[in-house]
Amino acid sequence: MKISRHAKIIEIIQAKEVETQEQLAEELKNNGFDITQATVSRDINELKLIKVVNAYGTYRYVTSSQGDSFLSNKLANIFSQTVLYVDHVDKFIVLKTISGAGAAAAEALDSLKFNGIVGTVAGDNTVFILVRKEEDTKEIIQKVKKMISEYEK
């Protein structure tokens, strides 16, 4: 019963924008599950559901993997809006950002998980990137420049 209920919860939150536990409980009841609020709360915890802001500014439940994707998209958007230019020396890439955006740009870059990046260090308006192999540097710079140029369109 629990497995089928969990499957139905995932199906419901993918099909509808469920904002509250009460809404989720009602949807489950409409689908033939006789459950309590406490059960819904436990299911949410067990399924590791999270709430994210939707396009209308309200919250909705999503699976944590959907939340990660949502967060990555938001961070990529922040990255493209805050990085001003990119330069490099050997295996070091330097990003200049608008003031105060270095940490956000580094977090976004880390979340994108580009191959070849060993790590990032962020300052107020600068991000240093250490690349594993010098030949990876140009590919990463191209990706960064593409992200920046897509925002400018």
Score class of each variant (00 low, 15 high):
Ile141Asp: 04
Asp43His: 08
Asp90Glu: 13
Glu22Pro: 01
Ser65Gln: 07
Lys8Gly: 00
Thr63Pro: 05
Ile3Phe: 12
Leu24Val: 11
Ser80Gly: 10
Val144Lys: 03
Leu84Tyr: 01
Thr36Met: 06
Ile35Ala: 01
Glu11Gln: 15
Asp110Gln: 12
Val18His: 02
Thr36Ile: 02
Asp136Glu: 14
Val131Ile: 15
Gly100Pro: 09
Lys74Met: 09
Ile35His: 00
Tyr56Ile: 05
Asn125Leu: 03
Lys145Thr: 10
Phe33His: 06
Thr126Pro: 04
Asn115Tyr: 14
Glu19Phe: 03
Asp43Phe: 03
Ile98Asn: 03
Ala104Met: 09
Glu150Gln: 14
Ala106Ser: 13
Val62Asn: 01
Asn77Met: 10
Lys133Ser: 14
Asn31Leu: 11
Leu49Lys: 02
Glu107Arg: 15
Phe114Ser: 08
Ile148Thr: 04
Gln66Phe: 05
Asn125Phe: 01
Val89Ala: 13
Leu109Trp: 05
Ser80His: 05
Asn77Glu: 10
Asp90Trp: 12
Glu139Asp: 09
Lys48Trp: 07
Gly67Asn: 06
Gln66His: 06
Glu150Leu: 15
Glu107Asp: 09
Asp34Leu: 01
Tyr56Gln: 07
Gly100Val: 01
Thr63Trp: 03
Asn77Thr: 08
Gly123Arg: 09
Lys96Gln: 06
Ala101Leu: 05
Leu95Gly: 03
Leu84Val: 12
Leu130Ala: 15
Thr39Asp: 02
Val86Leu: 01
Ala38Gln: 09
Glu19Cys: 10
Gln23Thr: 01
Lys29Ala: 14
Glu27Asn: 14
Phe128Thr: 09
Leu95Cys: 06
Val121Cys: 15
Ser111Glu: 07
Val83Arg: 02
Thr58Met: 07
Lys91Gln: 14
Gly32Met: 01
Glu152Ser: 13
Ile13Asp: 00
Glu135Cys: 08
Ala108Lys: 05
Ile3Val: 14
Lys133Arg: 15
Gln37Phe: 11
Leu24Phe: 11
Asp87Trp: 01
Ser64Tyr: 10
Ser41Ala: 15
Asp87Lys: 11
Tyr59His: 09
Ala103Lys: 14
Thr82Glu: 05
Arg60Glu: 06
Ala103Asp: 10
Val18Pro: 00
Thr39Cys: 11
Ala106Cys: 07
Ala101Glu: 06
Glu46Ser: 13
Asp43Met: 06
Ser72Val: 05
Asn30Glu: 13
Glu134Val: 15
Asp43Ser: 09
Ile50Ala: 13
Leu84Asn: 04
Thr120Met: 13
Thr97Phe: 01
Lys51Trp: 01
Tyr59Leu: 15
Ser149Met: 09
Ser80Arg: 09
Ile3Ala: 15
Tyr151Val: 11
Ser4Gly: 02
Phe92Ala: 14
Ile10Glu: 02
Gly67His: 04
Tyr59Pro: 00
Ile44Thr: 06
Ser4Gln: 13
Gly100Asp: 03
Lys29Cys: 10
Ala105Phe: 05
Lys145Gln: 08
Lys91Ser: 15
Asp124Lys: 10
Phe79Thr: 02
Lys138Val: 08
Asp136Arg: 14
Leu84Ile: 13
Ala15His: 07
Ile129Gly: 05
Phe79Ser: 07
Met147Ala: 06
Lys51Cys: 04
Asp87Cys: 04
Ser80Leu: 05
Ala76Trp: 03
Leu71Arg: 10
